[in-house]
Amino acid sequence: MYKDRKNKLSLLRNKKIIFKRGNTMNTIAELIKRDQNVPEVIKFKFKLENNLEYLPGQYIMISFPDSPEQKRAFSIMDYSREEKILDLGIKIHGDFTKRLSESKIGTKLNLSGPFGRFRIKDSHKKNVFIAGGIGITPVFNMIKYADLSSENNYLLYSSRTKKDMPFFEEVSELSDNKVKKCLFFTRSQEAEGKNEHITCESIIGVDNSLAQNKEEVFFYICGPNKMIDALRTQLLEKGYLDENIISEEF
Rank of each mutant, 00 (worst) to 15 (best):
V179K: 05
R187H: 13
S202F: 02
V206L: 14
S209D: 13
N177S: 14
D176F: 06
A191Q: 08
Q189D: 11
S172P: 07
S209F: 01
V179H: 01
E201A: 09
N208Y: 06
V179D: 07
L210Y: 00
I203Q: 09
E216S: 08
G193M: 08
E190N: 12
E190M: 10
K180I: 06
E216H: 06
E192H: 12
G193Y: 08
K214Q: 10
I204W: 05
F184E: 04
F184Y: 15
T199H: 05
V179L: 03
L174W: 04
L183V: 14
K180V: 02
E216M: 08
D207G: 05
K194M: 09
K178F: 04
Y220F: 10
F185I: 06
S175W: 00
L174M: 11
I203W: 01
I203C: 08
H197N: 13
K178R: 15
S209W: 00
V217R: 02
D176R: 14
N208A: 09
F218M: 11
F185P: 04
F184L: 15
E192L: 14
E190K: 12
F219Q: 08
D207W: 07
S188I: 00
T199K: 03
C182F: 14
V206G: 10
E192M: 12
V179C: 11
I221S: 03
S209V: 14
S188G: 08
L183N: 07
K178V: 05
E216R: 06
S188D: 15
E201H: 08
F185G: 01
L183S: 11
V217K: 05
K194S: 13
H197I: 08
V179A: 01
K178C: 08
E215Q: 13
V217S: 01
Q189R: 07
N208R: 12
Q189H: 12
Q212G: 00
L174F: 03
L183D: 03
K178E: 08
T186M: 05
N195A: 01
G205E: 06
N177I: 06
T186I: 09
I198M: 06
S188L: 04
E173R: 12
I203L: 06
E173F: 11
V206T: 14
I198N: 06
R187D: 15
N195Y: 01
